[in-house]
Design a protein around this nucleic acid. Sequence first.
DNA 1: CCCTGATTCGC
DNA 2: GCGAATCAGG
Length: 199
Amino acid sequence: MSWTDERVETLKRMWSEGQSASAIAKELGGVTRNAVIGKVHRLGLSNRTEEAEAAPTPEPTPEKKAEKKPAPSPKPAPAPAAEPVAAKPEPAAAQPATQPAFTPVPRRPIVPAGQPLPPQPSANEISPEALASVREVEKKSRKLTLMELTERTCKWPIGDPATDKFWFCGLPSQPGKPYCEAHVGVAFQPMSSRRDRRR
DNA sequence: CCCTGATTCGC
DNA sequence: GCGAATCAGG
């Protein structure tokens, strides 16, 4: 595969959208994330929208080593400007958003240890098997933080977001699903099974 | 371990 | 110019 104008355009668009190199590589196909990153740098659009990173210490850099920097390239980033197009929602794009979308905002100091707000459907609507499975799994949860979640980790929240006793399951998620096997079991209840369920 | 981007350097 | 290998993080 080569960098045709079209592919480069896709690269630029996705990179500016904040997509990761691997995601872009996957989209383009035929290239690795390394290729994408390499291209990104060659195109000079590395720093996407100025990173709020590294700056306080530009390093006086007295005379370390006359690196063979091809070009200090001032790169004041004049920016192609234009692009009056605010945002391109991209109709049929991937949905990176997490299903739940609950608010981790600190709730009332009260609420001792009741049921959190997350998914957690009413216990009496979950099959005994699934429920037992979840209890078991929650003991083995990896207790990941929000930052540690990936497409392959279970995103089932455990505990109360208002306290420190809160984390995400983190076990291997089912392919294409946001949760692990056990949590998929309680998250996706077939209409039939939850119907007519007496307690 | 999973993942990020950054850099190097033979091709 | 290209991108695998490698590096440096989270």
